[in-house]
Computed example of a mutant assay.
Amino acid sequence: MATLTPITESTAHLDLATALPVVRESTTSRVLVNNDLMRVVQFTFDAGEMLTEHTSPRAVVVQLVSGRMRFTVDGDEHLMGDGDIIYLAPGAAHALVADTACRMTLVMVDVAVATGV
Protein backbone atom coordinates (compact mmCIF):
# COMPACT_ATOMS: atom_id res chain seq x y z
CA MET A 1 0.00 0.00 0.00
CA ALA A 2 1.15 3.53 -0.75
CA THR A 3 2.51 5.72 2.01
CA LEU A 4 -0.10 8.02 3.55
CA THR A 5 0.13 11.70 2.63
CA PRO A 6 -1.00 13.84 5.57
CA ILE A 7 -3.84 16.17 4.60
CA THR A 8 -2.11 18.93 6.57
CA GLU A 9 1.19 18.72 4.63
CA SER A 10 1.91 20.01 1.13
CA THR A 11 3.93 17.88 -1.29
CA ALA A 12 5.49 18.32 -4.73
CA HIS A 13 5.93 15.64 -7.39
CA LEU A 14 8.24 16.91 -10.10
CA ASP A 15 9.79 15.52 -13.29
CA LEU A 16 7.21 12.75 -13.51
CA ALA A 17 7.89 12.17 -17.21
CA THR A 18 11.41 11.01 -16.27
CA ALA A 19 10.41 9.25 -13.06
CA LEU A 20 7.53 7.36 -14.70
CA PRO A 21 8.31 6.82 -18.39
CA VAL A 22 6.07 4.94 -20.80
CA VAL A 23 7.31 1.33 -20.80
CA ARG A 24 6.99 -0.76 -23.95
CA GLU A 25 3.93 -3.04 -23.92
CA SER A 26 3.09 -2.05 -20.33
CA THR A 27 0.82 -0.07 -18.05
CA THR A 28 2.61 1.57 -15.12
CA SER A 29 1.44 3.73 -12.24
CA ARG A 30 2.70 5.72 -9.31
CA VAL A 31 0.64 6.91 -6.33
CA LEU A 32 1.40 10.59 -5.74
CA VAL A 33 -1.06 11.48 -2.95
CA ASN A 34 -2.86 9.05 -0.67
CA ASN A 35 -4.94 9.99 2.37
CA ASP A 36 -8.48 9.64 3.73
CA LEU A 37 -9.77 12.43 1.46
CA MET A 38 -8.10 11.75 -1.88
CA ARG A 39 -5.81 9.58 -3.90
CA VAL A 40 -3.85 10.87 -6.92
CA VAL A 41 -2.25 8.37 -9.27
CA GLN A 42 -0.32 8.93 -12.48
CA PHE A 43 -0.49 6.16 -15.10
CA THR A 44 1.37 5.52 -18.32
CA PHE A 45 0.08 3.21 -21.05
CA ASP A 46 1.87 2.03 -24.14
CA ALA A 47 -0.21 1.96 -27.32
CA GLY A 48 -2.68 -0.92 -27.21
CA GLU A 49 -2.70 -1.24 -23.42
CA MET A 50 -6.09 -1.25 -21.71
CA LEU A 51 -7.95 -1.35 -18.42
CA THR A 52 -11.01 -3.58 -18.42
CA GLU A 53 -14.34 -2.31 -17.14
CA HIS A 54 -14.42 -1.60 -13.41
CA THR A 55 -15.97 0.84 -10.90
CA SER A 56 -14.84 2.97 -7.98
CA PRO A 57 -16.81 3.91 -4.87
CA ARG A 58 -15.07 7.31 -5.01
CA ALA A 59 -15.73 10.27 -7.31
CA VAL A 60 -13.00 10.29 -9.96
CA VAL A 61 -11.47 12.90 -12.25
CA VAL A 62 -9.38 11.57 -15.12
CA GLN A 63 -7.08 13.89 -17.08
CA LEU A 64 -5.26 12.63 -20.12
CA VAL A 65 -1.99 14.53 -19.93
CA SER A 66 -0.73 13.33 -23.31
CA GLY A 67 -1.64 10.85 -26.01
CA ARG A 68 -4.90 9.50 -27.40
CA MET A 69 -7.23 6.98 -25.78
CA ARG A 70 -10.76 5.66 -25.95
CA PHE A 71 -12.37 5.99 -22.52
CA THR A 72 -15.74 4.32 -21.98
CA VAL A 73 -18.10 5.47 -19.21
CA ASP A 74 -21.35 3.58 -18.61
CA GLY A 75 -21.24 2.25 -22.18
CA ASP A 76 -20.50 5.61 -23.89
CA GLU A 77 -17.09 5.82 -25.59
CA HIS A 78 -15.18 9.13 -25.52
CA LEU A 79 -12.13 9.82 -27.68
CA MET A 80 -9.66 11.65 -25.43
CA GLY A 81 -6.66 13.77 -26.44
CA ASP A 82 -4.04 15.89 -24.70
CA GLY A 83 -5.50 17.69 -21.69
CA ASP A 84 -9.02 16.24 -21.90
CA ILE A 85 -10.87 15.55 -18.63
CA ILE A 86 -13.64 13.14 -17.68
CA TYR A 87 -15.52 13.15 -14.36
CA LEU A 88 -16.83 9.83 -13.07
CA ALA A 89 -19.60 9.74 -10.51
CA PRO A 90 -19.10 7.18 -7.73
CA GLY A 91 -19.94 3.71 -9.05
CA ALA A 92 -19.73 4.62 -12.77
CA ALA A 93 -18.50 1.69 -14.86
CA HIS A 94 -15.45 2.66 -16.94
CA ALA A 95 -12.71 1.17 -19.12
CA LEU A 96 -10.02 2.44 -21.49
CA VAL A 97 -7.85 1.54 -24.46
CA ALA A 98 -4.70 3.54 -25.28
CA ASP A 99 -4.55 4.30 -29.01
CA THR A 100 -1.07 5.83 -28.61
CA ALA A 101 1.43 5.97 -25.75
CA CYS A 102 -0.39 7.91 -23.00
CA ARG A 103 0.12 9.62 -19.67
CA MET A 104 -2.98 9.99 -17.47
CA THR A 105 -3.59 11.45 -14.03
CA LEU A 106 -6.39 10.07 -11.88
CA VAL A 107 -7.78 11.92 -8.85
CA MET A 108 -10.15 9.99 -6.58
CA VAL A 109 -12.09 11.83 -3.88
CA ASP A 110 -13.86 10.06 -1.02
CA VAL A 111 -17.26 11.73 -1.25
CA ALA A 112 -18.28 10.67 2.28
CA VAL A 113 -15.17 12.29 3.81
CA ALA A 114 -15.42 15.39 1.59
CA THR A 115 -19.09 16.01 2.38
CA GLY A 116 -19.11 14.76 5.97
CA VAL A 117 -21.81 12.20 5.13
Results as ranks from 00 to 15, higher is better:
Val22Lys: 04
Thr115Leu: 13
His94Val: 06
Ala101Leu: 04
Leu16Val: 10
Leu4Ile: 15
Val113Gln: 12
Arg68Tyr: 01
Asp84Val: 06
Asn34Phe: 10
His54Arg: 14
Asp110Cys: 12
Leu20Ile: 09
Thr105Ser: 09
Val65Arg: 05
Glu53Trp: 00
Val41His: 01
Arg24Glu: 15
Gly91Glu: 11
Ser29His: 12
Ser26Ala: 15
Leu4His: 12
Ala12Ser: 14
Val61Glu: 13
Gly83Cys: 04
His94Arg: 13
Val117Ser: 12
Thr55Asp: 11
Ile85Tyr: 01
Leu51Met: 12
Leu4Glu: 14
Arg58Glu: 11
Met69Val: 03
Leu64Gln: 04
Thr11Pro: 00
Ala17Asp: 15
Met108Gln: 15
His78Cys: 07
Leu88Val: 04
Gln42Leu: 08
Ser10Pro: 07
Asp74Val: 03
Ala112Tyr: 03
Arg24Met: 00
Cys102Val: 04
Arg39Lys: 14
Val107Cys: 08
Val117Cys: 02
Met80His: 08
Arg24Pro: 03
Gly81Thr: 11
Met50Lys: 14
Asp15Trp: 06
Phe43Thr: 01
Phe45Met: 06
Ala47Pro: 01
Gly67Trp: 02
Ala12Phe: 09
Val117Gln: 11
Gly67Tyr: 03
Ser29Gly: 11
Leu88Cys: 08
Arg39Trp: 01
Thr105Leu: 11
Ala2Ile: 01
Ala12Trp: 07
Ala17Ser: 14
Ser29Asn: 13
Val117Gly: 15
Ala89Trp: 00
Glu53Ala: 15
Leu32Ser: 08
Met80Phe: 06
Leu88Met: 09
Thr105Asp: 12
Arg68Leu: 09
Asp99Gly: 06
Gly91Phe: 09
Ile85Trp: 00
Gly67Thr: 05
Gly81Leu: 01
Thr27Phe: 08
Thr72Ser: 05
Asn35Glu: 04
Asn34Leu: 02
Pro90Asp: 08
Asp76Lys: 13
Ile85Thr: 13
Val33Asn: 03
Leu106Met: 14
Ala114Lys: 10
Gly116Gln: 07
Glu25Met: 05
Ala101His: 07
Leu4Met: 13
Glu49Asn: 08
Met69Gln: 12
Thr11Met: 10
Asp84Lys: 05
Met108Phe: 05
Ala47Trp: 02
Leu79Pro: 01
Arg30Ala: 13
Ala2Asn: 03
Ser29Ile: 01
Asn35Phe: 06
Met69His: 05
Leu14Thr: 13
Asp15Met: 08
Thr44Gly: 10
Glu25Arg: 10
Glu9Asn: 08
Thr11Ile: 14
Asp36Thr: 06
Ala93Cys: 05
Thr105Gln: 11
Ser56Cys: 06
Leu79Ser: 10
Pro21Ala: 04
Gln42Gly: 01
Thr100Gly: 03
Ile7Gly: 04
Ile7Lys: 13
Asp74Glu: 15
Ala17Cys: 07
Asp76Phe: 06
Arg30Phe: 00
Val23Ile: 13
Phe71Gly: 07
Met38Gly: 11
Phe43Leu: 06
Ala92Cys: 06
Ile85Val: 15
Asp74Pro: 02
Arg39Tyr: 00
Thr105His: 05
Ala12Leu: 10
Leu16Met: 15
Met69Trp: 03
Val111Arg: 14
Val65Gln: 09
Met104Glu: 07
Arg70Ile: 12
Leu14Val: 14
His54Asn: 09
Ala17Leu: 09
Glu49Gly: 10
Phe45Gly: 01
Met104Asp: 02
Pro90Gly: 11
